[in-house]
């Protein structure tokens, strides 16, 4: 414990800025992954355990597109859209066949998918470490804000994640399609009876959730190492976020991802040996006090 260091950091503008930006950097990418997971769960009632593997797929697709074209934008698009298409196919061909069945069947299908994707990546790219590389546009010295430093790429990354989150929230809460999707989550039969193609909607929502995972993977590709199996750690973290925020709640995912980000950023200063314990404690506390999470609906 070093609470003096924590207090000293909070009272210094440069330290506070740097650590707050750290919290956002850590938190926002996590939010992007988690929001996809949460969206799929909220609407389809499916726990997509293969979400981490989708994140990996996004990173590798971006890596390949960047290596072939040299265009960063194309790489982002390939990561996000490629995984969205993959997600739709996965939902239609495989996942839809285990709807309404035991959650463990869904788990089993996702596990099979993880195994196949991990080995597929190893088959295509080998076991070596890969790094997409930073586009020249971002190869600038870090931006100085009130004495603290924030790298340009991270500003971009946080911006994209925030924009995606905002668009998702607006789309669900402010548009007609969003209204239908919300209705679909609560009463799919009724939505179907109104002549709306629920099958298409399910596939679309699954694709959108996958797109978010792919986008996160693509955004991570320039700064994180690409290896087969890289999806595991992000999957576990995003489950912690989902559980804390509430299964199916996008806003909850946002708050919980920030909570984790701030815990890690300021924990590194104030209680470095207890950061993981702290994350576990938060999760256990939430589960015991309010099992449905901070913003989750109470279990019916």
């Amino acid at each position: 414990m070093n609470l003096e260091a924590l207090a000293a950091c909070l009272s210094s503008a440069s330290c506070a800025v740097t650590q707050v930006s750290t919290a956002l950097i850590v938190g926002m990418l996590l939010f992007l992954v988690t929001s996809g997971l949460s969206l799929i769960f909220g609407v389809l009632g499916i726990v997509n355990f293969a979400h981490g593997a989708f994140y990996m797929l996004g990173a590798y697709l971006a890596f390949t597109a960047y290596a072939l074209s040299g265009s960063f934008l194309l790489a982002m698009a390939a990561g996000a859209l490629g995984v969205a298409v993959f997600g739709v196919l996965f939902e239609r061909l495989i996942m839809s066949r285990v709807y309404g069945r035991d959650i463990l069947m869904q788990l089993l299908v996702c596990y099979a998918m993880i195994l196949i994707l991990d080995d597929g990546v190893k088959l295509l790219y080998g076991g070596e470490y890969r790094m997409m590389g930073m586009p020249d546009a971002f190869a600038l010295p870090p931006v100085e804000i009130a004495g603290g430093f924030v790298p340009g790429y991270y500003l971009f990354m946080v911006g994209v994640a925030l924009a995606a989150g905002l668009a998702l929230w607006l789309g669900i809460n402010r548009t007609r399609l969003g209204k239908i999707i919300r209705a679909l989550a609560i009463n799919p039969q009724m939505v179907g009876a109104l002549g709306i193609n629920t099958t298409l909607l399910y596939a679309g929502v699954f694709g959108l959730g996958s797109l978010l995972a792919g986008m996160a993977g693509a955004l991570a590709a320039p700064i994180r190492t690409l290896t087969p199996g890289m999806g595991v750690s992000i999957l576990i973290e995003s489950f912690i976020v989902t559980v804390i925020g509430g299964m199916g709640s996008i806003a909850g995912a946002f708050i919980a991802a920030l909570l984790i980000g701030f815990t890690r950023a300021f924990g590194a200063i104030g209680f470095p040996l207890f950061v993981d314990g702290m994350m576990f404690a938060i999760m256990a506390l939430v589960l015991i006090v309010k099992p449905s999470g901070l913003l989750g609906r109470e279990a019916a």
């Binding site: 285990v98 089993l108 299908v109 596990y111 195994l115 196949i116």
Partner: peptide
């Protein structure tokens, strides 16, 4: 590449 094989077998059994 046992993951590839095991994954496919699981999918076959489940589906």
């Amino acid at each position: 590449y046992h993951g590839l094989v095991l994954g496919s077998v699981i999918l076959l059994i489940v589906l």
